[in-house]
Amino acid sequence: MPRAAKEPIASKKKAKDPNAPKKPCGAYMWFCKEMREAVKADNPGASVTDIGRRLGELWKEANEEEKRKFHKLADEDKERYNRENARYTMRAKAQ
């Protein structure tokens, strides 16, 4: 007996609005953005997993003074997101 063709499962996810503001990055992500190229240069044959592992080790080794810069960047990015999101929601309500 042939199997019946399965109907595609309807997506339960709401489609993302391409005009919505981009979410803010955390301090660790700002750290990774800055350090990734240096880690790749120090470890030319390393895989993506190895680079990520090394970045995590460097983040753990960093003291609060070193991390403060990245926390400041994260705070600024969060403020940017809040401003853009407020503007976006006001436009959405107006429509």
Rank of each mutant, 00 (worst) to 15 (best):
A27P: 07
K93C: 02
D17A: 07
K12D: 14
C32E: 02
K23T: 00
L55K: 03
K78S: 05
A27S: 11
R54I: 11
S47L: 12
K72A: 15
N19C: 01
N85E: 03
K78D: 00
A62T: 13
E57G: 12
V48L: 15
A86R: 10
K72C: 09
M35S: 10
K33R: 13
R91M: 14
K72T: 10
A74R: 01
K12Y: 00
S11D: 15
K69W: 03
R87H: 07
K67I: 07
A10L: 13
K40R: 14
R53H: 10
I9E: 15
P21R: 10
A20Q: 11
Q95H: 12
E79N: 14
G26L: 07
F31H: 00
V39F: 01
S47F: 13
K12E: 11
R80C: 05
T49S: 14
N63Y: 09
K72Q: 14
K16H: 01
K93M: 06
N82L: 14
R91F: 08
E37M: 02
P24L: 03
C25K: 10
A27Q: 05
P18F: 10
M1S: 09
A94Q: 13
R68E: 10
D42V: 04
K78V: 02
P8W: 06
P21K: 05
K13H: 01
E79G: 13
K14D: 06
